[in-house]
Amino acid sequence: MALLEIKDLHADVDGKPILKGIDLVIEPGEVHAIMGPNGSGKSTLSYVLAGRGGYEVTGGSVTFDGKDLLEMEADERAVAGIFLAFQYPVELPGVGGMTFLKEALNARRKAAGEDEIDAMAFLKLVRAKAKTLEITDEMLKRAVNVGFSGGEKKRNEILQMAVLEPMLCVLDETDSGLDIDALKIVSDGVNALRAAGRSMLVITHYQRLLNHIVPDKVHVLAHGRIRRTGGKELALELEQKGYADFVEAA
């Protein structure tokens, strides 16, 4: 059974059609990349999958792990195993990083019928994951994303992903705003999470991220539809030729 199956998905933002019939199937353990020019609907697709308000699905279906995803609230999707790494992680003044992680992890555990995590075990878990992402204790103590640089925010997203161990990771422009060193840390963090049961949907404008996170499949999204699907070599082709063919084709 596919982990994610999107059929003929249509969605509007402010009454304007953005997604115009997306078909996509992701099997467990696969890494798919979606590339496309600005305004093609990449971020809209990620928000529709995560369940953000203001995105109206006007047609089609999304099945995640056998469940009708579109019937679920954002928090239900998250505890079911979907994780969206935000393009612009949100600052939460006054909400401590550790509190936030613990609330999120316990929500996931509760949904799985598990007890809340023991305080010491939690601290140990977070510290171990944070270390590989070069996130200091001092950063963990701060309010979520407040005063973080762009790179720190992205690393913090990957830390949350590592702690929550989702089934499907949706990475929305995770490479934007990263310098080469930060890109490597983030990519290594993502690659460390690659596993047989875990799928990824990597949304990016540029090919460079895909040098680090090598996809099984690459899709080109333009004007709200997937125009072409290929292997990782498709990304290299796009890097050379740009999106002009797809933009004009619409």
């Binding site: 995560a50 369940g51 953000r52 308000g53 609230e73 954002a74 928090d75 999707r77 998250a78 505890v79 994780f83 969206l84 935000f86 992680p89 949100v90 939460l92 909400v95 509190t99 936030f100 609330e103 999120a104 929500a107 996931r108 949904a111 949350q160 929550l164």
Partner: peptide, 18 residues
Amino acid sequence: QLFYLMARGIPKARARAL
């Protein structure tokens, strides 16, 4: 902010309270 918390699995009422 509310969506960010909910996207991490925190129910809406709890997210609001936080």
